[in-house]
């Protein structure tokens, strides 16, 4: 066998193996999505959106309580986590830069990003749920905020770093004070990237179950009081899917489908923003 033909053969083997692996990976993904869509669409009905939870066997049962609870939990977490994350990322990129404090914050948030979310749930349980004596929506939102924070903080830091320093210098050279340089020039330059980070951060916490089990727990009925336990799509899905009742299992599929579509939409939106930025 000549050197060239050996090389060509090797090339074919590697290509076949990697293509096969990609197909297997994609296969599972589409399998999951397929099962989800088939069962989810089948379970969808207007009742899902208009009715609250009900004991098994009742016809008029839905997910209204979980949908609204989910919106509350994510909404509050976003309202707190996004400004906090963007400001902290701004500190890292524009003020702390390479200082010891900034580098420490970067390291810690990298670790927090890979921390198991159930640990965050247990932490919030210990500092909020246990002293308060009961589960609450607030505790759930706080857990989600803690998970969201490092994601937004690091993307903001990275995206601001991508803004060329000459752009900052040009603004300073016109006599701009630092806060105006950051707000008017640097943020504008990094707008698409920061927005993507926010969307991905929200998408990430939207799919969390473990930290909510310990904090907001669950409620089978509609509740908008953040001081009380609150339903979420994820925990509801967990409870209904593991129940022995067929109509509850159906509701679980619907919850899984709605949640997946929501997260998919956020991800697609995030990628669109990045594409638009690159296209410029």
């Amino acid at each position: 066998m000549t050197h060239t033909s050996k090389r060509i053969l090797m090339n074919k083997i590697i290509m076949t193996l990697s293509t096969l692996s990609a197909i297997i990976g994609m296969g599972f993904l589409f399998w999951i999505l397929g099962v989800l869509v088939i069962n989810g669409v089948d379970a969808l009905s207007w009742n899902i959106f208009s009715q609250e939870g009900a004991p098994p066997g009742y016809e008029n049962s839905g997910l209204k309580h979980a949908l609204i609870g989910q919106l509350f939990l994510i909404g509050i977490a976003t309202l707190v986590g996004v400004p906090l994350g963007i400001l902290a990322g701004t500190y890292l990129s524009e003020y702390g830069q390479k200082s010891a404090l900034a580098e420490t914050i970067r390291d810690i948030s990298d670790i927090m990003m890979s921390a198991p979310s159930i640990v965050i749930g247990a932490f919030v349980y210990a500092i909020i749920v246990a002293p308060m004596g009961h589960f609450s929506g607030w505790a759930g939102s706080i857990a989600l905020t803690i998970i969201m924070l490092p994601i937004i903080l690091r993307t903001t830091d990275d995206m601001l770093n991508l803004v060329p320093s000459t752009l900052r210098e040009a603004a300073f050279a016109l006599g701009a004070p630092k806060y105006k340089v950051i707000i008017q020039v640097v943020y504008r330059g990094a707008k698409a990237g920061i927005l993507t980070g926010v969307l991905l951060g929200v998408a990430r916490v939207a799919g969390e179950t473990a930290p909510l089990l310990f904090t907001s727990f669950n409620d089978n009925f509609l509740n908008t009081n953040m001081n009380e336990p609150m339903a979420s799509l994820t925990v509801t899905m967990y409870n209904y899917a593991t129940s022995p009742y067929e109509d509850w299992q159906k509701l679980g599929w619907a919850a899984a489908f709605i949640l997946s579509m929501f997260i998919l939409a956020l991800n697609v939106l995030g990628r669109l923003f990045l594409l638009k930025k690159k296209g410029k």
């Binding site: 752009l167 210098e169 603004a171 050279a173 016109l174 020039v185």
Partner: peptide
């Protein structure tokens, strides 16, 4: 420095148009 830089302006090597 803010006042100084309004009196002494600067043009850079690469164009630095702001994203606006």
């Amino acid at each position: 420095l803010i006042h100084l830089r309004t009196q002494i302006g600067m043009i850079f090597q690469k164009p630095t148009a702001f994203p606006m």
